[in-house]
Design a protein around this nucleic acid. Sequence first.
DNA 1: GCGCAGAAGTGACGGTAATCACAGGGTTTC
DNA 2: GAAACCCTGTGATTACCGTCACTTCTGCGC
Lengths: 236, 236
Amino acid sequence: MARYSHEVLRGLLAKHMLFRDASARLLDGLVKFATVRHFNTNEEIFAKGDPGNGLYGVLCGRVSIYTASQEGEEVFLNILEPGEIFGEIALIDGGSRTASAGAMEPVDLLQIHRDHFMPFLRDNPELGLSMLPVLCERIRMNVEFIEDAVFLHLSARLAKRILSLAEVHGRPEPCGVRIGFKLSQQDLAHMVGATRERVNRELSLWREHGVISIDDGMILLRKAERLKQMVEEISA
Amino acid sequence: MARYSHEVLRGLLAKHMLFRDASARLLDGLVKFATVRHFNTNEEIFAKGDPGNGLYGVLCGRVSIYTASQEGEEVFLNILEPGEIFGEIALIDGGSRTASAGAMEPVDLLQIHRDHFMPFLRDNPELGLSMLPVLCERIRMNVEFIEDAVFLHLSARLAKRILSLAEVHGRPEPCGVRIGFKLSQQDLAHMVGATRERVNRELSLWREHGVISIDDGMILLRKAERLKQMVEEISA
DNA sequence: GCGCAGAAGTGACGGTAATCACAGGGTTTC
DNA sequence: GAAACCCTGTGATTACCGTCACTTCTGCGC
């Protein structure tokens, strides 16, 4: 497993909006409690319903936050990049995990245990104030997710998702924007709450029309405008 | 408009979980900033996208929190009872309203302006700590809403909604539980994200089977067990 | 190189729910 | 008390999407 120095861990936390206003001393105090854990691809970090006893930060790799029905059908709520923090809901209210988390690739995580974090929070209530906007941001994301799920058809949901992936992970190329990692159609289906077959058909259609092309499992977005149109038009 | 004494207003706040740990002095300080506003049935309290400059508490009446698509299609995210608080998201992060709020009946609201609340919050950071679980609760509700929307068919969503309405507003009667206020089928449709016609058909079916009956627009839940079964069974 | 697993691609079919259209009942308004 | 309006009830039709079933393709390990 990779080793991380105190400075590197502190750097990860310092970059996050949660600790934007935090003093160096406060960060140092918190990093003392941090441990590093490694997870392999597809390994489960925690499951929905588990007791929530830790806060996590992504050091490297991508982490999926997802929920599943009784039948095992999965839907991704979020995909986290290095530098992002998760697991704060159950940490704060002491309840069970609202969703599951899994490693989409080999992942190193920073973990701070609830037993360390909560006393620290009580001693530094200004940290609580900083957490408020973080939670608000989660709520805004969730509300947008709800709106999309209820109002938009699959084509619009998928278009929106691919546009946002291109925005976050996109590398410009001569004839468009490349989404820089492999993404199975099953994963895409999980993101938009649909079946693999349905996503396949939609992508095939777009490929025929030259809106996207796919080489080696990586999507090249050629006509972003067309997708933006779809999000607007097909909403009803 | 009804008048509310300082003590009544303080009582409303004191009962809320947000102020569970709050001292009397803190509450008094906050109530000084409170104003009372009245809204008539169907009047809009604020709209999604508005600048969020106030925290509200429900003194009397029911308030709906809803979001709408560009085409005007509406979905209720929540229905608030007297004693509940809303509008805290945009208040905290200074962003725009994530959803709209409307009066479902004549409503009196307590309002605290952002210009008063935020300095107060900075001076009393322990209040910030109390807000964290409140926001977590919102997130848990939203995640459950997402799961229902994605995983459950209409019949199960509607069953779940009616069971929860019966739990909150139910009065026991000889042969079941009465949901104690009029609720149009259009409103129900908004709650579960469906059309009025679809809800009507489902209710008609349930009435035929003696699961519910409806007198004067108010639902009498006769066989709650049957609805609970539906939530479990028809999930896939 | 063979076999196997996982991903992609496609056709046929069925089911859930939206849409459109209209009729009847109850309430409010003047 | 007639008109206007909203809510309810129901039929016919259509659209979207899931399910099932199958084939192909692409690594990947042995």
